[in-house]
Design a protein around this nucleic acid. Structure first.
Lengths: 351, 351
DNA sequence: CTGTTAGCGCGTTCAG
DNA sequence: CTGAACGCGCTAACAG
């Protein structure tokens, strides 16, 4: 590996002059600059960022800890983070926790040891240990997608409560009265918030949430499948399902297929989470979250904090999510009493 | 930040003893170990990996440069890489080139400057500059998904030629005679190989590839849409489309919908690339690539090379891809002359 | 078994 | 405008 020293020797100057030329800091004579630049080109020299980082104790690297990068929602968030980070010369390290607190903690340790400048975190169920550790080491944190019960940190997420309200309201407007909701772990805020929005819509419509099927599981296809099977085995079958995320919806659809039930004829389905345009025959009625914006905004908050000299008060951004009506939701077959038209709040393909 | 020195002072030993305890290298007395460990716990000390890296000039970090992490094929590869890397204490830095040679080069520069130990690369169209740069800096490279025309490096990819042959053979067996193929850039090996497999199957069946529609574009939805529109506007319309990847297929399906054409009644479609189980109503007949295995194998080759003292000859692994017959392919409507049954080579849901 | 010395490659500080 | 000295935090190579 060629070093600053090699360049300095070849150019016949000191290492400091080379350093100054590279970083454009301080004063250097045009003559020196030319010689240095030529030496750099000749040697194919590339600065050792490691040494620079050790010296400055800033790595220009962010850690992004999320539950599953295979989920397009998080993939899109990741792109938002990366684009915003790269724009300011930051790199990103990705970590998949698979919703495991232990893995999360392990990754947080790795990120601390690698001295990232900040961590963007989608906290698993109970991430207090990770967050404590990060606070101890004075690393700034931005919490993504989920609400934080305790502690202070910047937070960016979509409006789960409002989105769920819109989704359920849509189903009620279509005439549904028996509406099941399938969400992830009760301890994850998105689950709780989506159930809260569900409850609000039901109560507002004079329906009793207590008589409905509200199920907590995991945000996975397998869990969605299992919960739906239980749902269908129960004595009173709902006419509509509100799935807490896209994976749960996939599992639910699989279970419905196995039972020979058609969507939306036998069962309407509305999903929290959209898929990228074109990934599926436009079919699912969804609550679309601004995933890219969530990632971008989170990275920007972090970078702003890192760039600021004065401490910044923790900020929380709740981005709007929007109902997109497609073909998976329709009035219930038997009881088409109130054929109130669905009120789409967004275009099919927003620009 | 607490340092080795702080720990050493608190434990009343030298920094070297602390270092030895932490790394389990050399001899240390149990008494010293105990005192050091207690001091570490007391201070919440975490080693500064940066300094360690600077000293040892090994970062235990791999760079993964791919074209688009939004593509589930690459997402799955990324998981394979990450899992294999983490198993040996390596971290991974992800970079999205969006198929741009310039971005690729920029990222490769970043990775070199950050002194990653090796680079896993899905080369964009003509990546010789990036590869040259990597070779100059003596960084080991594993090339993923695509074939390398020149230069030597480890390579891991799926069998594009054989997979394409199987796909087209399947369509021919169904009775199709007019089969279009839509692929990515001609300069990308997967495009060329898939066309080669296509040609072999056609010729073997006594059909003339030259009379068929063979189109090169990009591996994107927009390109798939555009190519399909051209396809449909041509005087002779094929009865089947072989789409070079999933995004091209999405664009094609969109174009078919716009033209009011039904799949598979009016047009059969077979796709190179599967989606993760459950992401779509099981519908598309596909050539499934072992994406996770590709990523895992590539990372393992790299780690093996990094761990080895002696130089290792470049190795190439071509993994089998497999036909999964679903509902998007059927005999052509008009000319159901040879209703030869499709020979599925894989179960619908392989375990 | 333990400590001392030296230096990884760079940038800050302060003299020239 | 330029250079010399020093240290970021850690570990390899020697002593002891």
């Amino acid at each position: 590996m060629t070093t600053l020293n090699d360049v300095a020797k070849l150019a016949g100057v000191s290492t400091m002059t080379v350093s100054r030329v590279i970083n454009g800091s301080g004063y250097t004579s045009p003559a020196a600059q030319a010689r240095v630049n030529q030496a750099i080109a000749e040697l194919g020299y590339m600065p050792n960022v490691l040494a620079r980082q050790l010296r400055s104790s800033r790595t220009k690297t962010l850690g992004l800890v999320l539950t599953d990068i295979a989920n397009p929602f998080f993939t899109t968030i990741a792109r938002g983070v990366e684009d915003a980070a790269r724009a300011q010369g930051y790199a990103v390290m990705f970590c998949n926790t698979d919703e495991s607190v232990d893995l999360e903690l392990e990754y947080v340790r790795v990120l601390i040891q690698r001295r990232v400048d900040g961590v963007l975190l989608v906290p698993a169920a109970d991430s207090s240990t990770s967050l404590d550790l990060l606070r101890t080491h004075k690393l700034p944190v931005v919490v993504l997608d989920r609400r934080l019960r305790f502690g202070e940190a910047d937070q960016v997420r979509a409006d789960s409560e409002g989105g769920a309200y819109d989704a359920v309201r849509h189903l009620i407007d279509l005439g549904h009265r028996e509406i099941a909701i399938l969400v992830g772990p009760e301890s994850v805020s998105t689950s709780a918030d989506r159930v809260a929005g569900y409850r609000r819509a039901m109560i507002e419509a004079g329906l009793d949430p207590a008589s409905q099927q509200i199920r907590f599981g995991k945000y996975t296809e397998a869990s969605g499948h299992e919960m739906t099977c239980h749902l269908l085995a129960a004595p009173t079958r709902p006419t509509a399902i509100f799935a807490g995320n896209n994976f749960i919806a996939f599992g639910a659809m699989q279970a419905l297929r196995e039972s020979g039930l058609e969507i939306p004829d036998d069962m309407s389905i509305v999903v929290f989470d959209d898929l990228p345009q074109g990934w599926i025959i436009p079919f699912l009625t969804v609550i679309a979250q601004p995933a890219y914006q969530i990632g971008k905004k989170a990275a920007e908050l972090m970078l702003e904090r890192l760039a600021s000299d004065e401490p910044i008060e923790p900020r929380t951004f709740v981005l709007r999510s929007s109902l997109i009506v497609r073909r998976s939701s329709a009035p219930p077959r038997s009881t088409s009493k109130q054929p109130a038209p669905a009120r789409a709040r967004s275009m099919e393909n927003p620009a």
